[in-house]
Design a protein around this nucleic acid. Sequence first.
DNA 1: GTCTATATTCCGATAGAC
DNA 2: GTCTATCGGAATATAGAC
Lengths: 199, 199
Amino acid sequence: MQQSTEEKILAAAAKVFMEKGMAGARMQDIADEAGINKALLHYYFRSKEKLFDEIFKEVSGQLLPRLNQIIESDISLFDKIWAFCQEYISRMVENPYLPLFIVEETNKQQGAFLERHLGNKRLRLDKLAQQVQQEVARGTIKPIHPLELFLTIISMCAFPFLGKPLLQHMSGMNDDMFNAMMEARKSEVPKFIINAIKK
Amino acid sequence: MQQSTEEKILAAAAKVFMEKGMAGARMQDIADEAGINKALLHYYFRSKEKLFDEIFKEVSGQLLPRLNQIIESDISLFDKIWAFCQEYISRMVENPYLPLFIVEETNKQQGAFLERHLGNKRLRLDKLAQQVQQEVARGTIKPIHPLELFLTIISMCAFPFLGKPLLQHMSGMNDDMFNAMMEARKSEVPKFIINAIKK
DNA sequence: GTCTATATTCCGATAGAC
DNA sequence: GTCTATCGGAATATAGAC
């Protein structure tokens, strides 16, 4: 496997924290998952909180750059919406626990948490906002606040992963059907959004 | 206050469980919130898990009937979308912790959990689905799978409450601004959706 | 029914041998 | 660096007085 103990811990912690959240995760779970002893966790990371912080930083740091790269690229607004949905949904299919993990911890952790961890790292919407306003002024799309548009895009991409258990309970769809639906949504979502805003 | 001890416990437990989730909530928190002793919680509800189950049943049971009433009413599809968004967002503004609570626990609790608690209680989409298919056949809206449409509606209504901390961190909006935005979304969301599907 | 006190279990963290 | 053993505190749950 050629993986250092520290790497094994980080991988195990990421898995356990994302499945159970900070409050629900146990150090023993992480040790078991990593195939090592509980004491080693503290040897490497001192405390559960520090280990969690490490994981949150790592996980949230992976997604942002890829999304920013799309959001700040020089393609047209419609192409950008398209590319964003493709990328976002693809990443979530790879890691279905991510949306709940982010949403849960940003809601549960104390006030300064987001500042500490994200700080200046955030989605940079300026260019996208500018593009939206240009298209509105040009009359190619209906008037819409850029932040509202962005919120709608994220909502449509992210929520299905959060509501998956309820959706499956309601409709009887299994995991394969769910994944097929999300695969289809990679293009259905941008089509839907563009239909809604184009004049 | 004219409230029985059992009612005080249920109210306190609902508040604490919704804020902190099953894993994060402490029986002591609930006792403090209710202004009673920890032992009394067990006297009335035997265990934390049973108390939690009671709350989940109560909370999830409140929302469904109101939404079903709209979904199964005899109004037009567009009016129905409108009414659903109004009602859903209004209920969430009253109780902003509800979306995260439902999403979190339906994802974290074990397999049979949803069956046990919701059982046959669920959103009844049949009539809505029928309406969608009629409108598609009639050529008034673009072809869309009813479940996809419903998922989109819920996504746009519910996700903002889940992503609120991130949204505020990104945009600097305070609570008043957020509430104002959600108030506006009561009509912006249905307008957006109808724009997307109408021919 | 409600309380105080206590039992019991669990879990994060540390000590110390190797 | 890695382990076993254990501490100490926290959290659920119970016993028993009133």
